[in-house]
């Protein structure tokens, strides 16, 4: 619960101070395919954080999920905390940000699929691992507290 609260607060802080965002370098071999479906007026983003042995994080950067497909590289064998945020804005409701995060330590030789969807105020973020034979396995969401 606290982790979620901190996460929400953290992402809100990030969203509030847009100058603090930087572009994720995305220079590792591409092993995560991100498929995004959002409706008009929703801005989805992926924030990548390094995770060290003490479960502390270091922000690496952000990529806008403004295209239906995006391939990103997350170094194999190194834990990362991936946070997907959904930002909405309207005259009546003002600005809102919702986020969901999960730990991922990519395995060498495996591919990953991150399915991101936001429609009618309902969101879904699913992470699957794909082995060499193409078999998919759903990965449960892992909070930072369980790293």
């Amino acid at each position: 619960m606290k982790a979620h609260a901190l996460l929400v607060a953290g992402v809100l802080a990030l969203a509030a101070g847009c100058s603090g965002l930087k572009t994720y370098p995305n220079d590792a071999p591409k092993n995560v395919h991100v498929a995004t479906q959002t409706e008009r007026g929703v801005r989805a983003s992926l924030h990548v954080h390094q995770v060290n042995g003490e479960c502390t994080t270091r922000y690496e950067g952000t990529l806008p999920l403004d295209q239906p497909a995006l391939d990103i590289g997350v170094p194999a064998g190194q834990p990362r905390y991936l946070v997907v945020s959904f930002d909405t804005s309207s005259f009546m409701a003002g600005s809102c940000s919702t986020s969901v995060g999960t730990l991922l330590t990519p395995r060498a030789g495996y591919g990953y699929e991150l399915a991101v969807r936001y429609q009618k105020d309902i969101y879904d973020v699913a992470l699957r691992e794909i082995d060499r034979k193409g078999a998919r396995r759903e990965l449960a969401r892992r909070p930072l507290a369980g790293c």
Partner: peptide, 23 residues
């Protein structure tokens, strides 16, 4: 409204997403 729609989706199996609780 959003939470009730999400619970309805979980019950029917037609939408298993999470509600945006800011809505």
């Amino acid at each position: 409204t959003t939470l009730v729609r999400a619970i309805t989706g979980w019950a029917t199996g037609e939408n298993v997403g999470c509600p945006d609780m800011t809505k």
